[in-house]
Design a protein around this nucleic acid. Sequence first.
DNA 1: GATGTTTGGTTGAACCGTCAACCAACACGG
DNA 2: CCGTGTTGGTTGACGGTTCAACCAAACATC
Lengths: 181, 181
Amino acid sequence: MSQDEALAEPRWLDDREQAAWRAYLDMNARLNARLNREMQDECGMSIADFSVLVQLSEHEGARMRVLELARALRWEKSRLSHQLTRMGQRGLIERSNCTEDRRGAFVVLTDPGRDAVESAAPRHVESVRRYLFDGLSTEQVDALASISSGVISRLDDACGEQIDVCDTAGDPGAAPSDSCD
Amino acid sequence: MSQDEALAEPRWLDDREQAAWRAYLDMNARLNARLNREMQDECGMSIADFSVLVQLSEHEGARMRVLELARALRWEKSRLSHQLTRMGQRGLIERSNCTEDRRGAFVVLTDPGRDAVESAAPRHVESVRRYLFDGLSTEQVDALASISSGVISRLDDACGEQIDVCDTAGDPGAAPSDSCD
DNA sequence: GATGTTTGGTTGAACCGTCAACCAACACGG
DNA sequence: CCGTGTTGGTTGACGGTTCAACCAAACATC
């Protein structure tokens, strides 16, 4: 043990970093938990449901191919497939098959689905405001954005070295326009 | 719909806030995924396993009561119980019953458990450094900390209004000392 | 000492996410 | 037409999380 550590010479976190890391982890866990619970209690669906509905509702025709949706959400296709099954059972979306490419499938927003997302969105934004943005200065907002995008780009870089599910074809900076996951 | 919205008058996020929120969500999802994957691939355990082991190893005697552990991790007791069962099966911890309070149970770190956490810790820190701290200025580190603790305290406040699993008896600022979840 | 309440902890079912396997349809070379 | 590979998508099993129910020991009270 001590030999490994001596060889690897790990640079432990200093006090400030420790404090920041702990606080970040704590915030994360609790903010996610809270937003999810509120969404569940007030709107009867999960944040995951909501994210899917948002993507779909923002897309013209409110219908998308499954993989297109998966890429937009940065989800694995398997996860999305399971999710769609559940959402289909609750009537939030429907699947319809694609005539051009008969392997493919479309996901279509149903009327109840649209109602659900339209009623959930403002409440969700309120929560995000209440817990996050209403307490932040504009500098803090910018700091959060720049920290986040820095981390993201470092993760992207690491993506090349190791195997990972990177979207090879990127539309960097394009596409989605609204608030959600 | 438009009536509800008119009544509730939701303050949508402005562009900066949107950008920050999206970036934050994205960072979160991907950083968690990455850290978890690395922990799994390199050390054969999850971040959850690691967190439990860290708490345990930092505690004198490397043994804790179950609820003490749950409070330290801010986990529900049920979640912890399941987790401990799995970890017990893999030999990372053991349960031993408490003679003073015969309802109670101790969780004890086993030797393999100690080996596992001691080998995992430096690698984990390296990853956190690589993706997060090595790319942040000291101002950004402080900003992250202050943003996080702000959100946490707002969540704590909201805790009074609504039902939630707040630790009523708080040791605010006390206890845990090292890097983990 | 019977009775009710709280505390410490486990269990089972249901839901969610990941992984690996799989299947059907396109695509292309020969 | 036949193989071979790739793409779009689903499925099943398994680990993880939550919820509600449960149990036993402790405590309290009369």
